[in-house]
Design a protein around this nucleic acid. Sequence first.
DNA 1: ACTTCCACCGAAATCGATTCCAGAACACTA
DNA 2: TAGTGTTCTGGAATCGATTTCGGTGGAAGT
Lengths: 341, 341
Amino acid sequence: MGRAEKVTVRAVAERAGVAVSSVSRVLNDHADVSDGLRARVLAAVEELGYQPDPVAQSLRSGATRTIGCIVRDIANPLFGDIVKGAENVLHDAGYSLLVSNTDGDIRRDVDYIELFLRRRVDGLLLSLQAEDNADMIAALRQASCPLVLLDRDVPGLSASAVLCDHFTGIVAAVGHLVALGHRRIGLIAGQPVIRASRERKRGFDEALAKAGLPVAPELVRLGPYAAEFGHASTLELLDLADPPTALVAGGIQFTMGSLRALHERGVRIGAELSFISADDIDWLELHDPPISVVKRDHMRMGHLGADLLLRTLGGEAHPCFEPVGTTYIHRASVQPPGVSR
Amino acid sequence: MGRAEKVTVRAVAERAGVAVSSVSRVLNDHADVSDGLRARVLAAVEELGYQPDPVAQSLRSGATRTIGCIVRDIANPLFGDIVKGAENVLHDAGYSLLVSNTDGDIRRDVDYIELFLRRRVDGLLLSLQAEDNADMIAALRQASCPLVLLDRDVPGLSASAVLCDHFTGIVAAVGHLVALGHRRIGLIAGQPVIRASRERKRGFDEALAKAGLPVAPELVRLGPYAAEFGHASTLELLDLADPPTALVAGGIQFTMGSLRALHERGVRIGAELSFISADDIDWLELHDPPISVVKRDHMRMGHLGADLLLRTLGGEAHPCFEPVGTTYIHRASVQPPGVSR
DNA sequence: ACTTCCACCGAAATCGATTCCAGAACACTA
DNA sequence: TAGTGTTCTGGAATCGATTTCGGTGGAAGT
């Protein structure tokens, strides 16, 4: 196995017959290095197959070339796409990505923030579970590295952010439902401690207001981002005396739970209940009927998040914001109400 | 922001009026520490809020408490689940997880292996894209840290592995098709450079052989793990003069591409063509008709992989192997042939 | 009273790289 | 020839922790 005698800068220096400082100067191409010395050092480096030890470099420089990424559930394709997009960009820039899994537990947000900061990451990519957690904000204030929020808004924190325009997509989606004649429209979304939830709710309200329709409180269910909440809420909505004729699921977990509930109840989607999923996953198109969605580019979110980090690491002092658009895509799951036969 | 003056072991020593070595001894509870000294040091640690710097510890100890994980596509829920399972276990054991994304490019396997080894990870969790790549094997031989293969088999390499019993599941699945009367059964699977592909093919062959049926070469398509291959292969199979009456997709990407092709062609799954997906994703149950699957516990794979790593890090010298079972689950996508009306 | 031993603690080396500082070698000018 | 600069190079300090080694003081043994 690894019988590689660990070749250090000292070994290179010995081999080349120069001082270690000279080796370092050559490798980091500092000024004041003669051609002869450079050649000898590079030859020795080549012969020994020397590669500097990143751990030692980190100790000396204070930079670890590592980024910490905090998400709720890495197995969720939404976050998977984000992480993938970010990792691609960061890898090309010479950074590695540490991942986490906070799994619905807000305290784990704090734990991972502290863990990653202790590990001296060069930056944090954050999809937090709540924006108002005091412990979390306190932990982030300790950070001396750049922070990038993914579709989150933590007031008073100096951080860049990728911000999705949920509003436009939802307004278009609900507007379409209204235009088709729907009057009782249900919404299942996350709690307002997350920007995405607030924006979706705001778009929902706005679309109804624009149509002069009242918001029926019993049709709006805000809860934790988990399939089970989508499932339970859907059953509740179906059981109302005056149930909705259309339903918007504001998040992919809700979509999953909601569809499961509709299948269990044998509800004919489109015919009996129009359905829209905010957030697109490819298989929704293969559903029968295909599910209308509000789409955004998840990988691009990760990509832009990484860009923002790199920009700050590159010296940009002020927080920057990158918008990501959303589009409503109509599919057969949305039909005019009362086409029940 | 971070106005925290960086509290080091030296600061603690000064505060407590002792030598740095004593502080270290207290913190790593070595022997030869008097109660008085321990108390003074711990008090100073408390007052200053001292936390040792992991980078310095890594340089000194050679251990980084970091594990590298190499997968093809972190956005794929299969790998997402694996990574999640592994991260949970490793986090609890004090390790952090570096992720990668090799994205169908075999050279990136090698790149990431070398990158992670250079970064001195304490272990590697590997879902390689090919088992016979000489460069990759050479790179892995350089490793002086434990290796764990995820559903892979690289002969001659000293590594533990999580091994899925694809064989049993596929035999049951194809056996069921045969029992229902299917005679022409198609298979779309990965290339034999990956154990999973080989085992699925072996199970497929075995099930047919057991039934005394010949393997029709034109019905077996082995190619790269990508939805597009599943899509194209499915179209080809449908266009055969004597097309299959049942189709097994050996991998979730193939399932996705294959289902898309069947939808495009308007094939009535179950009635016109029975369909089985090897690897389960939750939405397959919501498909119309629900898709039969060969299921395995992905998160458990990650969990066991992490356990194997920890076991080796804990001193276990010999490679260990952990089996993961597969189960065939019948759903309505599988019907007797010729129920076309 | 003198050795021996042990418990305890501090100084310094170490991990591997980078960088500051000082000095050597050489050229050029007055 | 002496003096002044350049240009290049080596030694040593540094990053922050761990660990070896050696030394001190006190207690026990003869």
